[in-house]
Design a protein around this nucleic acid. Structure first.
Lengths: 355, 355
DNA sequence: CTGAAAGCGCTAACAG
DNA sequence: CTGTTAGCGCTTTCAG
């Protein structure tokens, strides 16, 4: 299908920079070769650690190159090798602020570290919802060898299409039944279940759920929530479900409105820590004390969760594992191995807000 | 000077991926040329919007290319054009977690958006303190045309050296007197002054300062703090200074220790919102109420500041402007224009914690 | 073990 | 206006 934008039309004002203003001219392999009294081929092989070159020569050349601050031009090398050492990481952003949720950021951090360990670079792109085509452009233009998509699954159909076209890509999210692409995600149903069961064990009976259940991840958490209620023989009250958009900056207003309904409740399970922390504020303003009056459980275990007061009980998602899993799966896809998904464990972290 | 590591020794297991496993072969300019019945040069010109090509042909070719999902290979184009369209963004990380402070992240977001607008890509790298050489490698290897360094200025001397060597680079931080590199930063002295004066106006006399004053940014804030105290004729009590490392994950312990000293105080000015929010927790635990017993002002105005309870009075640093300023200065450096620095205004945002 | 030669995919003179 | 030609800096056959 045709893409909307014509030529990418790069801003003409963008400097195409390479040579430092001052400073010695950039050296290249030929220079090293001359200085070492060998051919460029030999330098190339030495620098890439080819066993064809004897240890001694290899070291001599490597040392020479290093002492001159020479680095192989990766662009040229990639062109010749017909492949790139760069992975595109795309953060889906729905709100103004690119980076809203600290949780997604810690996944970004983990991915960055993992790629670094594996000797690959990370090209970061923020994707506004209407510019899906950027995803395929990134790959088609040879800028990146594969894609890691972090964020909401509003692009489900498009991602499926890309996968059908053989795009190497992995997604952080919830494994949808008809997803063709590999997914790494937390065990949201389990997380929702653990959080809710914990509140029930604490004696709560009227547990509210805050989260947009049309969003796959939150939807799974909601399922876990209902399962726990069922198991305890607690009837669901639909008024206790407050669905709102993930990352909505107006969380507070929504919360206030909900509180105004005067629906009785003794606990809230929020489908993100950011939501939970906002809730704390709103509850406090109303003179409702956490955990005495209302117990509260969040989701994600962001760093701040143990720094707010009261400290926040939450479901931890292992972000470190997430980064590694994403990169692993992408590498598998790149190697043409069969697609698989990974579900990471969710664990309950009990703190003061549910005491 | 020689670098430590020998050849970068890329991990052999890293897949050098380009061709999708399945799916049609990647097309190239020659294919488009053939299909359009013109030469590759014409396609190249048409796609880059050259005025040499008549409107009609240009559109025809562009459309053909788009309909086939063709994108020019940026690697090859860059090689020929001898320049890259990628900027390296380096986040200095001292703690385990790459990304600790939400404030730095919103700068990252802003930089990402600005670069995107300017048609440039962003290569993200996290830098552990001991691997400085990565900075120059990034440029020497031609991966990026310039560098934006975000974070602490522990690398001051190294950055100066790079600048002397003509490295195109900009830093987010405090403009040190002997810095040779361009710096974008907030007006820390003003911020510290505004925060402190505000607390004094609220009737506070024993105002504590939390922040590592050996860090240039916090040091400036501390200067503003002392100036405001001086102006009000309030004597400084050295016991009211709690210096600790920025981003220290053990903030809470430090705080607790400090509180145990039983030094009387009626306000705290914390040099970051993260610190301030942690403080809220510790104070609360001790039965000290904010703002009734102790007033509190933070720094940065991170998103959560207005979501905690009580909402946090803080000094706002304009992150949107920060990103634009960083990119602007980098482009200037790239264009060989004389180096300059930019100081962004700091403004007081009054909320409940100082009421 | 090493060098010469041939491009990777594209753009920029240089001639039409 | 358009095509031809010659590389960008590197890696990799292919012969020594």
């Amino acid at each position: 299908m045709p893409r909307k934008p014509a030529a990418p039309a790069p801003d003409d004002s963008a400097p195409s920079a390479q040579a430092p203003a001052r400073g010695r001219k950039r050296m290249q392999m030929a220079d090293i070769a001359r200085l070492a009294g060998v051919s460029a081929s030999t330098v190339s092989r030495a620098l890439s650690g080819s066993p064809l070159i004897p240890q001694a020569t290899r070291e001599r050349i490597t040392e020479l190159a290093n002492s001159l601050g020479y680095r192989v031009n990766v662009g040229a090398a990639n062109l010749r090798k017909r492949g790139v050492q760069t992975i595109g990481v795309v953060i889906l952003g729905d709100s103004m602020q690119m980076i809203s949720d600290p949780f997604l950021l810690s996944i970004l951090g983990s991915v960055a570290d993992t790629l670094d360990e594996r000797g690959m670079s990370l090209l970061l792109t923020r994707l506004k919802a209407d510019r899906q085509h950027v995803l395929s452009d990134l790959v088609e233009s040879g800028q990146v060898g594969g894609l890691i998509v972090i964020g909401q699954l509003t692009l489900h159909d498009y991602l499926n299409e890309l996968t059908r076209n053989g795009f190497p890509m992995v997604v952080w999210g919830a494994p949808l039944p008809d997803a063709l692409y590999p997914v790494v995600g937390g065990d949201n149903a389990m997380g929702g279940y653990l959080a809710t069961r914990h509140l029930i064990e604490k004696g709560c009976r009227r547990i509210a759920f805050f989260g947009d259940i049309t969003h796959p991840e939150a939807g799974q958490r909601y399922l876990g929530y209902t399962r726990a209620l069922d198991e305890a023989g607690i009837a669901m009250d639909p008024r206790l479900l407050q669905s709102f958009l993930f990352g909505d900056s107006r969380i507070r207003e929504v919360i206030d409105g909900w509180l105004n309904q005067a629906t009785p409740f003794d606990a809230i399970f929020a489908s993100s820590d950011v939501t939970a922390i906002s809730l704390m504020g709103s509850l406090n303003e109303r003179g409702i004390t956490v955990p005495a009056d209302v117990k509260l459980v969040g989701y994600d275990d962001i760093a701040l969760a143990e720094h707010v007061h009261p400290t926040l009980t939450t479901i931890r998602q292992p972000t470190g594992q997430a980064g590694r899993a994403l990169v692993d799966l992408l590498f598998e896809a790149l190697a043409g191995q069969p697609r698989r998904s990974i579900v990471l464990p969710a664990s309950l972290i009990v703190r003061e807000s549910s005491a």
